[in-house]
Amino acid sequence: MAARTPLTRERIVDAAAAVADESGLAGVSMRSVGKRLGVEAMSLYHHIAAKEQLLDELADWVFGRIGSPSPQAGWRDGMRARAHSAREVLSAHPWGLTLVESRRAAGPVLLEHHDAVLGCLRRNGFSVVLAAHAFSVLDAYVYGFVLTEQNLPFKPGERVEDFVAELPTFDERYPYMLEMVNEMIVGQDYAYGNEFDHGLELILDALTARLATEAGHSSG
């Protein structure tokens, strides 16, 4: 008989993430994770004290997959790369959206990630306050964009132009909507996901301007 692979905290958290991928966060329990691992739920308690700790570990699991800015990165490149990484991870694991900022007992991976983001901003001239504002607005944008993408009414593989063509409401009663549809969607192979980069650059441009203003005030 082959020896059973020993339980570890890492294996338990990986299994919990797999359960969440299949059944959502509501499907994660000590019982469901134990079942996935082929063990009784009680066996998990030697490594994880309770479900709440398991959820804390899952939050760390998510942040462990989101790329942190390197110490050498410029703030704009660092924030851009992190935003793309966060979007990719949260799109692949939608349940993560309910965990990333909700846990009271922040784990070491989450804290290291947050510290790296703030460090990238602070090393590149951001004040403590502006770094906090930048961190907040970037996360709000990424999380909101991912949530919007998850709830779009498009079928898999459906073109936005085909979806819009089925809507009876885009006519002269809504001139600005009609204008946007005709210019950006009809005949343009439009994909909503492409809006991510446009929005992100708008935010980065605004932060660049605010950083320059702050630097001007401090040197005046």
Rank of each mutant, 00 (worst) to 15 (best):
A2C: 02
Q53N: 06
F154S: 02
A116V: 04
E161H: 02
G157T: 05
L152C: 03
A18K: 09
L110M: 13
V39M: 11
D77V: 11
E166N: 10
V129E: 15
V89E: 07
L44V: 05
A3Y: 04
T8K: 07
Y192G: 02
F196Q: 11
H84A: 04
V137S: 07
F154Q: 04
V117C: 08
L90N: 05
L55Y: 12
S23W: 06
R36G: 10
L147F: 05
D60E: 07
G216D: 14
L118F: 08
L58I: 06
G193R: 14
D60A: 09
F126L: 12
E101V: 04
F135H: 14
R122S: 11
G193P: 04
S70R: 15
A215Y: 02
E149A: 05
D197A: 13
Q188M: 08
D115A: 15
L99F: 03
M79Y: 05
D197G: 08
P175T: 10
M180K: 11
G220K: 14
G193I: 12
P153K: 14
E183W: 11
V89I: 14
L54W: 00
H133Q: 10
V19H: 07
S218Y: 03
A86K: 15
T98S: 12
R159F: 00
H217Y: 07
R65L: 06
H113M: 13
T148M: 06
L147H: 04
E10M: 10
G157F: 07
G220W: 12
G78S: 10
L121G: 07
